[in-house]
Design a protein around this nucleic acid. Structure first.
Lengths: 163, 163
DNA sequence: GTGGGGGTTCCCATGATGGGAAGGTCAAGG
DNA sequence: CCTTGACCTTCCCATCATGGGAACCCCCAC
């Protein structure tokens, strides 16, 4: 524990106290999310109480799944005493919507797959509805007539905005 | 439409017919997920019906959220006529479990955030419970106050192997 | 003064995907 | 026959947030 200035700690100590790794603290600084901290004569970064507070803010926002970009916006609003809570709320609600969209996607996958797994007896025999489904070219939610896997007309590939 | 061999198509055509981009087809080949295809004299990759079938298999598996690693396993089982359906089912159920874990995480985030947003009036004034929560250092596990209708502690987002 | 722990910078890797440059190939049309 | 444009090839770079590790410097206690 160096940092002879009162109340200032090194990056490792800041990491320990905020739950943000030293690597990440440097990274956040490098992308401009956090301001460059005061350096000791040695060149060591030193963090004061308000820096630690900011780091905890970032940590909590990450835990809520915000992107770095959104966190940057939130930090700016946090620091801006003239902000309107409407701006903050908008960011939060956008994120809630994004989370719920993602949840619905994942639920679709889990549901389909759970159904398939349920219809698979899971024994020593090779017959497996799961593989059968994966091998069925015409990807569709509802069972559709299938044609032999030997080339059929284009049939337009449905672009799923996945991943 | 080159590929003078009967029924063999170029990578672009394969991409169009399977919904897997040419880039991704090459990438899958490079990581060993797919075998190197027959090359025309020109050096062009050429894909036959069974290759297209495999590509559709991969595409469908991706749509279900399987990792490349899992897809490799599924492909191997698909090709192995001595497989047991239990193996396939195990992979599928593992993935369902992972999806559901992730869904729960996201729901935790969305729930917390939706609550916060609800308690934020979202007007011109700067006071904002959302920012207050983010700035609150002692990250309480379940500040999901309001009234506890029927919900038990949703186990907030601790260190989530997220994103 | 020495050892160990911790700081510094820089590079690399992840997973799955896209973008783009530089150059070879193919088919069609003048 | 030659041009043109679409398409293929390989190779490199970027994403997003994170970790690993090397090479080197610094600080403190013994």
């Amino acid at each position: 524990m160096s940092a002879r200035e009162p109340g200032r700690v090194t990056i490792g100590e800041a990491a320990r106290r905020t739950g943000v790794s030293a690597k990440m603290i440097r990274y956040y600084e490098s992308i401009g999310l956090l301001p460059a901290p005061v350096r000791a004569e040695s060149g060591y970064r030193t963090y004061g109480p308000s820096d630690l507070h900011t780091l905890r803010f970032v940590r909590r926002a990450r835990d809520l799944g915000f992107s770095m970009e959104a966190i940057g916006d939130l930090l700016a609003l946090w620091r801006d005493r003239d902000r309107s809570s409407a701006q903050v709320k908008a960011i939060a609600l956008d994120h809630v919507a994004a989370l719920r969209r993602r949840i619905r996607e994942l639920e679709g996958m889990a549901g389909t797959l759970a159904d398939l797994a349920e219809s698979c007896c899971g024994d020593d025999r090779p017959d497996c509805p799961i593989l059968d489904d994966l091998a069925e070219s015409p990807r569709a939610e509802s069972p559709r007539a299938e044609s032999p896997p030997t080339e059929s007309p284009p049939a337009g590939a449905a672009r799923a905005p996945d991943r």
